[in-house]
Every structure is written in C-alpha cells, then in structure tokens.
Design a binder for these strands. Sequence first.
DNA 1: CTGAAAGCGCTTACAG
DNA 2: CTGAAAGCGCTTACAG
Lengths: 338, 338
Amino acid sequence: MKEKSTSFDIAFRAGVSQSTVSRALRNSPLVNEATREKIQAIAKELNYKVDKNASSLRSQHSDTIALLLFEDPTNDDSAINPFFLSMLGSITRACSNRGYDLLVSFQQASEDWHADYEDSNKADGLILLGYGDYLSYEEKLLKLLDQETHFVRWGAEVKNLPLISVGCDNYQGGIEVADHIIKQGRKQVAFLGTASSHAPEFFDRYKGYCHALENHGLKVNADLQFNALYTEDAGYKAACELIASGEQFDAIFAACDLIAVGALRALQEHNITIPEQVSLVGFDDIAIASFTFPSLTTVKQDTQLAGELLVETLLTMIQGGEAKTTLIAPELVIRKSS
Amino acid sequence: MKEKSTSFDIAFRAGVSQSTVSRALRNSPLVNEATREKIQAIAKELNYKVDKNASSLRSQHSDTIALLLFEDPTNDDSAINPFFLSMLGSITRACSNRGYDLLVSFQQASEDWHADYEDSNKADGLILLGYGDYLSYEEKLLKLLDQETHFVRWGAEVKNLPLISVGCDNYQGGIEVADHIIKQGRKQVAFLGTASSHAPEFFDRYKGYCHALENHGLKVNADLQFNALYTEDAGYKAACELIASGEQFDAIFAACDLIAVGALRALQEHNITIPEQVSLVGFDDIAIASFTFPSLTTVKQDTQLAGELLVETLLTMIQGGEAKTTLIAPELVIRKSS
DNA sequence: CTGAAAGCGCTTACAG
DNA sequence: CTGAAAGCGCTTACAG
C-alpha cells in the first residue's frame, strides 16, 4: 500500500496546526475561510480521507447503523424472503440519504443476534429485521434493553415489553382481505399460516380476518386454518393438507405471498381453478405476485416508507429524542386470483 | 448509556495487566490457560466487548468489507434488480462465514463510488457490484488501482485494465441459448439488449449468440437487435419496437430476465403466443422466472457460488496473496417459454 | 480564529 | 508467561 497521509501531513504542508486541519475538514465555523479552503485543497490533492476508526474512537460515535436480518432456522440457506430483500434495499437507501453507513449481518435465530455491534462501538444503533418468533427472543430483547442499546424492530408489537417498532397494521390488513373475499360471495375461507404468538405478524393477520368474518356473520371454522411458516414449500404442504382434509373451501387467505405461491402450485396440481373454484389472496406484494398465473391479489406493505421510518426512528433514539412505535397502513392490491 | 467497561476494568478485576487481558481475549497462546479462562469469564460477566474502533485503529485492519452496489442512473429509486439483491444475500453470507463484517452502500453510477471506504480505514477491501458501463467508470477504476485499493468486481472483463473480477461466462451463456433455440427449429432470432461496450455483459452474451448462429449456418440479422438496458420497461419497449419494425421473428433472446419479462408482456398484449409463435429466453434466473406464464427459459448464474468467490478472491488480495479472475459456468434452465 | 495537549481503547514490540 | 510503555490518528476542551 501507498503511504497513507494523516492530518499531520496536511498540517505541515499548510503551515498550520493539526487541530486546525481537523476543524477545517469538518467545516467548523471556527476556521478562517481562506485557511479552510487551502487545507481542503491540500487534502484533496493528497487523497486524504479522515480515518474513521480514529475519529469514531475519539468522538464515540460511528455514524453507522447495523442491520440484523434474522431468519427462521428452518429456512435453508439459499433463499431469503424477497420481502426482506426489498426492505434491505430501502433501508440501505434511507441510511445513505442521511449520511450513515450500513453494516449488514444475517443471523440465525439461534445465534446471538443481539450481537455486539453497538457494544463494540461499530454501530450507533441496530435495526432488527425478520419475520420472527419474538417469544423465543424475549430474553435477548431484554438484554438489549438492559444494555440500553439503541434499536428498532420491524414487526408486530411484543406484549409487555417497551420496544420501539415499525410495522405493518397486520390486523387491518387481515380485515381488508376478508372483506374483499366475502364481498365476492365466498363463504368458506381457509387460512394458511401459523396462527399463534410464534408468528406474531401472521397471528395479527389471522385475528383481523376472524374479526371481519364474524362482522359479516360468518363463523370462523378452525378446521380451515393450517400452519405454515414463511416459505413456498410450507405453503404447498399446507394447501395439500387442506385439500386432503376434505373440508369444503372456496377461498384461501395465505399469510404471506410465498405461502400463496406454494398454495397456487398445489391447487393447480389438483386441477382446482383460480379464481373460479377458489379465490386466493396473499400478503406482502413481493415482485413475484404480479407474475404468477393468475396474478396474485395481495396486501402491499410499503417497503420504501418502512425503510425510511425504521432509519428515522432509530436516529431519533440515537440522538436522544423521543421515538415511538409506528404502524404502516396496508394496501389491498386486487389482481386476477380473486 | 451504561458505563462501558474497558480492558482496564477487566485487568483490575482479574489482578493482571491490561496487556494480558488483550492477549487473553484474542486467545493468544502466550497466556496461561487458567489466567485466560479467568479473564474471559470476567469479560463475559461484564458484557465486555472489544472496542472495534480502537482495535482497528491500532492494528490497521478492520475485518470489514464494503460492498458497493451501483446502478444505472436511469433506474428509478424503487426497484433494485432482483439478481443483485440475490448476490447481496450470498455475499453477506460468505462474509459472515469468514468472520468479516459487510458494509453495504448504493451508489449512483454518477457518484464517487470508488468511495473512500478503504481510504478511511472503514473496510479492508471493496466489492463492486452492478451491471455496468465500465467504460464510463474507467477513470475511477484507474484511481482505485492507483491507490492500491483492494477490490474485486462482478462482471465482464475490462480490456487493458489489470482488474480482478468474478463473472459469469456470458459468451458461453449466449452460445447455449442460441443452440437451444436453433435446436427447436427457430431461425429468426431477435436479441433484446444493448450490444455494445456500454453493457459489457450483454455484449458478451450477444457475441456468443452471434457466434452460435453462424456456427449453425444462420446469418445474424442486425435489424433484429434492439437496445434495452436492465429493466422490465426497457424490455417492454424493445419488444414493441421489434413488433412495430415488421421484421419476421420466431424467437427472442432477452439479455436479462427483467427484459424478458417486459417482452413477455408486450408479446401478450399483441396476442402473440409463447412458445407457439415465438420462443422466449432470458438470462439470470431470477425468482420471477419460475412464475411467469409461461415460465421462462433462462440461463442461471450461480449467485451462491459467485458470492463465495467474490469474498474469497478479495480476502486473498487483502492477505497479500495472488488472486485471479474467475468465470462461473452458466447453466441453461429450460422451462415453458421455449 | 489558532495551537498545545490530553486522551479515546486498544495492540504490539520490548524487556524480563 | 507477564507487564510497562508507546502509539494508531483523530476530536475536543482549554488557553490565548
């Protein structure tokens, strides 16, 4: 490597002290304008860049955020849910708009994803992203809280913990799906997705859906709910179970698009026509949803907005401000599958 | 924030010097085993984490890699090509498997994406990712080279520059597509994609395709090549131009899947049946390709392997080893559109 | 507006 | 195997 220049080299060339160089480079108003321009010109000429390690060490903040993307341990290594990939994109953008760097890390749910990014001063705060069974993480979340780590989560609220989150209004999303399906005259709606606190987002969608069914005077048939977590395979299997169960159904609400895509495959293999015999609705609006045949009716979560809010909320916390949990409005996108 | 503990706190509690703590925490063989265990126990109890800024500053390496994802400036903000999102996923995994952190940054092609991650000591090296017009970046690449920055690129080779890259064998991919199409009896093959050094990956695919056509005694009809860059919209427009041109064609080779998806839409709007009237083949094998109707024949690039190779190559360079450019073998995936 | 000095929290020769 | 000391390259009171 070439010899790296330091602020002392610049100070020497400019004939000023190193402190003045440091000030000039950060555009401190304390520095005479001519001096500042001269110093900045020399810095540019020498290709000088402030050493982030030294500056972070001294100032005790890194202007960096860490994104921890955690996944269900049952997921295989190859595929990340496209929904989170899209969130990752919007978070990256939101950070760079604010001059923050983003450290990305994947965590198996089993690992120490509470990690040490902030403890080790690599990041000023954390974003936690993933569909998740927060029940099993409770201990780790408590530890984060205990250490006064700055962090925001994406997802459903966790009861009894004072966590700051940004999430989709899943309950409302469930209502909109059920309303839509019922408006089309369907009466026997199956739900494919784990409906328990182990999948809190799905559970909220389920509760909203149940609420809407009852509002329309329909009874919720618990036999029409089949567990499935996050993946296309899980959706395929759940739909096969549904078909094998012999229960009558004329509509399916899949807890996420990947589940819907798996269900679609199962239905087609059984020569069940969509939407004629069965309406199918998903959740997330991943890119694939526009391309399935028939295209998938689903609930869009605004990932662009979500990324902005996550970053903004976290920065508020880092700066010592009062942050609060936000819910994003879901948006029903009607396509050909319903 | 709570009082953060330092290696001196641990030294004090353990009754040893701070140097010994530092050694024990990094599992130096110089430290007595009992001492080491005692120190590590105390560190754990105090929730102590080594300060990365201090340690990187002192040791002059950060065990961090920066990923610069750059995009064509014509792209709108909302969508990142799913292919790169998938690469991002595999790179993240490959880094974490090797104990490296990953800093992610999006760059507009117009910006200083040669950036200062390594200059500022935030990262030990760079991965450059993006379809790209390397011609216009040549100056920046030269600067990276000049500064002896450690970096690997994803993509096509750049003539006359000693760059280390990992890329797909796009030329071979083009050959396989053409062979496949011709084997099906098609003779008038259109190419949708910019065929110039401004899109080197596409150009290589085009050249392989031309080579194969000629090998089969077919003449390449330059009127059947329509420019298009990276996006579904561009594919849609190019296909519309092709249809409007009045040229006869019975197959389309789209330079990437997003272009193919756009072309598919255009063909369907014109009631052209696939694959009966026209065969359609893409490139990349993004997730969407399995879900279009009909599903898309395409060329798969192994993103898992690509991520591994990119990271491995870069680490070799960082460690002062001899790294070399690698090509990944493309794999034709035949589906229903051809 | 500028400079001299301290110190952020480590790692690593050096000496024993 | 251990400790005392230097120093990585900055930022920031403090003094002028």
